[in-house]
């Protein structure tokens, strides 16, 4: 498996983790939701650099 494929797989994994946190934040406070959204943006930035 090439490094490019491995990095794309890692990017998907990072997004999955961020989305799970985002989902959990839905039953929490607005502050936690903003934090989860910020985390998701960071996760997507990581994917952006690797895709």
């Amino acid at each position: 498996m090439s490094k490019a494929v491995k990095m794309k797989l890692l990017s998907v994994l990072v997004i999955i983790i961020c989305v799970i946190v985002l989902y959990l934040s839905l039953s929490s406070s607005a502050t936690f939701q903003w934090a989860a959204l910020a985390l998701t943006v960071v996760g997507c930035a990581f994917a952006f650099l690797n895709c």
């Binding site: 989305v19 985002l22 989902y23 934040s25 839905l26 607005a30 939701q33 903003w34 989860a36 959204l37 998701t40 943006v41 997507c44 930035a45 994917a47 952006f48």
Partner: peptide, 27 residues
């Protein structure tokens, strides 16, 4: 990814979508 971020920014500032809408839409 760029369009998703942009959609979130416009949804918040122009359409008044709060964090719960942005989070739910993304998930």
């Amino acid at each position: 990814i760029i369009s998703w971020v942009l959609a979130g920014v416009i949804a918040y500032f122009v359409f008044g979508a709060g964090p719960e809408v942005l989070a739910a839409g993304t998930v």
